[in-house]
């Protein structure tokens, strides 16, 4: 029992370290690429950099966890296809203005009932749409744990930077 506990904690530590190193590396890369692109600190740039850092944090977390978890797999998939999806969405918006009305009507029909708590949780946990409730709860537990670690690590990094 104790050995298992130790192993579990070691596992979390392992994830933590991997996340920290990945995050720092991606951050550094971001900085490098940013430096020559001009770094005026106006609102837009800051917002964009915030977004990028957030995405980097999530991606490095998912990478650190690896593909063994449903949520990390879903997250990685989402991040990988982000650009493509955005492109497709933009195209759709441009092309299909005619179909908008129909789609809206259909959506109304589908989303007639109020979203329950489970649905809310499903939206929060990446990849939760395709899970049954048991899986969802399990993944949620792991996700929460990883998020907590992530927050802790980022907190320390931010503190270090603010020194």
């Amino acid at each position: 029992m104790t050995s298992k506990h130790v192993r579990a904690t070691r596992h979390t530590k392992f994830i933590k370290n991997r996340f920290a190193s990945r995050f720092l590396r991606s951050h550094l890369r971001m900085k490098r690429s940013d430096r020559f692109g001009g770094s005026q600190s106006n609102e837009g740039v800051r917002k964009r950099s915030t977004h990028r850092i957030k995405i980097a944090a999530y991606a490095s977390m998912a990478l650190a966890v690896g593909p063994s978890r449903t949520w990390s797999r879903a997250l990685l998939f989402k991040l990988r296809n982000r650009a493509r999806l955005q492109g497709v969405l933009r195209k759709r918006c441009l092309v299909s203005k005619k179909n908008k009305k129909k789609r809206v009507v259909r959506n109304k029909v589908i989303i007639s009932r109020e979203p329950s708590r489970t649905d809310t949780l499903r939206k929060l946990v990446p990849g939760g749409d395709s899970m049954d409730i048991c899986c969802l709860l399990e993944e949620t537990a792991h996700y929460i744990k990883c998020l907590a670690t992530q927050v802790k690590v980022m907190q320390t990094i931010a503190d270090q930077l603010l020194l």
Partner: peptide, 25 residues
């Protein structure tokens, strides 16, 4: 649970913002 997850996600966002502001240094 939902609240907690949301708060954690918000925290991540906030921290990334913080890191972004600290960037120049």
């Amino acid at each position: 649970i939902i609240n907690y997850v949301q708060s954690l996600q918000r925290q991540v966002e906030f921290l990334s913002m913080k890191i972004a502001t600290v960037n120049p240094r």
